[in-house]
Nucleic acid binder design. Structure first.
Lengths: 114, 114
DNA sequence: CTGTATCCACTGCGATACTG
DNA sequence: CAGTATCGCAGTGGATACAG
């Protein structure tokens, strides 16, 4: 089996693409990369549970794709940001996302008519 | 939520990338796209169960990404082949695969040292 | 050869409650 | 605010047996 598959598995996680997209394109999915707070991510990705959000963020952080910064204000502030590595992945994933957007109609049409 | 995410979910399926890669790059993961028989796929993707292989092939066929051809020999012969749509997806996924291969070391190093 | 059907273990994931 | 801990379900996926 191709060794790259292990990474593909991680990348393909259910919420990975969403979080990467949020951090890489801002809240409107169309802007520039910028750091975001935990609560901001939670609000933006309305469908994800707190557990999955934390779990996915931890995994991405461990892989060096995002960085986690704690600011000891009161109450504490935590921001997440794409690393250079994460940024490069985000660029690559945009291609896949563009493909999905471009061919979505085709796929759904074929799915319905089969 | 971005509408393209539904397609991303399908694309990110556990075995989708492997099967697309096999059909798109031949048995050695480095050649040209060509049709393959069911048993050939089963042999090549040693890790996948028969159930998952069939299930994934059906899903991809339904989405118009691969075509299924039955030749009524005895015993029956079935070949699978990427459609034009599937071929375009395969091209896009190669970018992701290349990224994974390129940055694998980085990620694993970071994972180990955290 | 190319599937389909059934059973079953595992785990991904959500809901909820609690902590620093 | 930003998590952690625990429970429980539902879906994923493997093994096996059967069928056209």
């Amino acid at each position: 089996m191709c060794p790259s598959h292990q990474l593909l598995a991680r990348i393909s996680g259910k919420w990975v693409a969403l979080i990467m997209s949020a951090l890489g394109s801002g809240p409107d999915c169309a802007g520039d990369p910028r750091p975001m707070r935990y609560s901001e991510l939670a609000r933006l990705l309305a469908g994800v549970s707190q557990k999955m959000l934390t779990q996915t963020l931890r995994a991405l952080e461990q892989d060096g794709l995002i960085s986690r910064t704690v600011t000891p204000t009161v109450p504490v502030t935590v921001t997440y940001e794409l690393t250079e590595l994460g940024l490069s992945l985000h660029e690559t994933m945009r291609g896949l996302k563009r493909w999905a957007e471009t061919h979505m109609d085709e796929v759904f049409a074929h799915r319905a008519g089969s």
